[in-house]
Design a protein around this nucleic acid. Structure first.
Length: 423
RNA sequence: GGAGAGAUGGCCGAGUGGUCGAAGGCGGCAUCCUGCUAAGAUGUUGUAGGGUCAAAAGCUCUACCGAGGGUUCGAAUCCCUCUCUCUCCGCCA
């Protein structure tokens, strides 16, 4: 969420920045400002009437000796009250509309984000490792079934399509990856956290999932609870409505959670394998920091995520997303993409974003530089470190041998009782 | 799930219809004072939005006593609904 006052003072700056995402947003800002002006107008009028009502309420007890005066005042107050309720109704509508409009505006791209309309204009920052291209490498789902570590049919039986059962070494490998990633994050100073996975609407609004993306998430019937689409939501909301001290920052958290997404717009995409599931596991890295440090903390967090791929010796590339391809709340975003030999391509396995004050403003997370200073909005940063299921799939392909076994990456062997090969 | 109690400012806590944004205490901040172990005195101390202003400060208005609605000229105070916390019972990992 942006600061409406700032938009009001400098509309052209916001138009220029948001147009980098989408030119239609210029109109949105104009509409927003018209609404805002109307709203303020009604607010002033309502305030005046409220003021008069308050005056009368104070005058009445002071006119105890003059019953006719009291009657007169009561009459006026009722009259003012009628006007007020009309104006208040309109004020309420306009406030609601203005807020909604503001909530639907995406974050402005940072200055160093490349201009572009979609994923074709993203910028490759670096490639790491040597991608395998051997023709005998089987897709992860095929080899997974062959090795009896995926059970797709029964996943569908007990749930739905896009749900998979991991069995035997598959389940153990998933758990090993999870532990490895959490240990890696802990080593780098992220406090391990295990949050609720059902979270309320306020939290979903806080990090920017709602109101715009309603329908992408699972909601509990009759309850104000959603299944977390990412640990970003519960973890970042931990400090909602808090004022932090400068010495506390940066706050660094890591968390493993299952993640749930309806994948409503993805019919037909990635229907094979475990790349796109309604439920998947992920370790998330989250930082709450200052406006001065968020850019550096973002780079550092991305490096922390990259380091996991390096330790696992999985070839990857790092992409800087262009203005048109970034997520709603992000001001700058790197995607890490891991190599999938069977698809002869890189697939997203982590997305590391700096949100600036966009989320913090929604969540009301502030900090004070000095105790007597006015509290200012914090900056938030997060990224996957990493998506576990996709990591497992990538291992199944990149560590596949010609005879159809999987070598266990060295860093994972201690987590699997020294197991070196899956066959 | 049943019965009861409660929710007030950074914290504790008073306040059951009128000048209460809210006593008092603690804490914080500022100034002053003092050699007896860091005490005392005085003052100050919430958030958000609007207006004024080039801007800030200042001034001013409005809202906020868990949330939302209602009664009333007037609500922290009365009524309704909801949420949360605590105690007891039941149930349960």
């Amino acid at each position: 969420m942006h600061d409406l006052k700032e938009i009001r003072i400098n509309p052209d700056l916001y138009k220029e920045k948001l147009a980098k995402r989408n030119k239609e947003l210029i109109t949105s800002i104009d509409e927003l400002l018209v609404l805002d002006e109307k709203k303020r107008n009604f607010q002033s009028r309502a305030d005046e009437l409220r003021k008069r009502k308050n005056e009368i309420a104070g005058l009445i007890p002071r006119s105890k000796d003059d019953p006719s005066k009291i009657e007169e005042l009561k009459k006026e107050s009722i009259e003012v009250g009628k006007q007020l309720s009309n104006i208040e109704a309109e004020e309420g509508n306009l406030t609601e509309e203005t807020n909604t409009k503001l909530m639907w505006l995406p974050n402005a791209p940072a200055d160093d984000v490349p201009l572009g309309k979609d994923e074709t204009e993203n910028q490759e920052i670096l490639k790491w490792g040597n991608p395998k291209t051997e023709k005998w490498i089987k897709p992860h789902d095929e080899i997974g079934v062959k090795l009896n570590i995926f059970d797709f049919e029964r996943g569908v039986k007990i749930a739905q399509s896009r749900f998979t059962v991991l069995t035997g070494v598959g389940a153990k490998l998933e758990r090993a990856i999870m532990n490895f990633m959490l240990d890696h994050a802990s080593e780098r100073g992220y406090r391990e956290t295990f949050p609720p996975i059902l979270i309320n609407k306020t939290s979903m609004i806080g990090t920017g999932q709602l109101p715009k993306f309603d329908g992408d998430f699972y909601k509990c019937e009759g309850e104000d609870l959603y299944l977390a689409p990412t640990a970003e939501v519960p973890i970042t909301n931990l400090h909602r409505d808090e004022v932090l001290n400068l010495e506390q920052l940066p706050i660094k958290y890591c968390a493993y959670t299952p993640c749930f997404r309806r994948e409503a717009g993805s019919a037909g995409k990635d229907t094979r394998g475990i790349i796109r599931q309604h439920q998947f596991n992920k370790v998330e890295l989250v930082k709450i920091t200052t406006s001065e440090n968020s850019a550096l903390e973002h780079e550092a967090l991305t490096n922390d995520a990259e380091e996991i791929l390096k330790k696992l010796e999985l070839p990857y590339r790092k992409i800087l997303l262009c203005s048109g391809d970034m997520g709603f709340s992000a001001m700058k975003c790197y995607d890490l993409e891991v190599w999938f030999p069977s698809q002869n391509t890189y697939r997203e396995i982590s997305s590391c974003s700096n949100f600036g004050s966009f989320q913090a403003r929604r969540m009301n997370i502030k900090y004070k530089v000095n105790p007597k200073d006015k509290a200012i909005f914090a900056h938030t940063v997060n990224g996957s470190g990493l998506a576990i299921g996709r990591t497992l799939a990538a291992i199944l392909e990149n560590y596949q041998t010609e005879k159809g076994t999987i070598l266990v990456p060295a860093v994972l062997q201690p987590y699997l009782g020294g197991l070196k090969e899956i066959n």
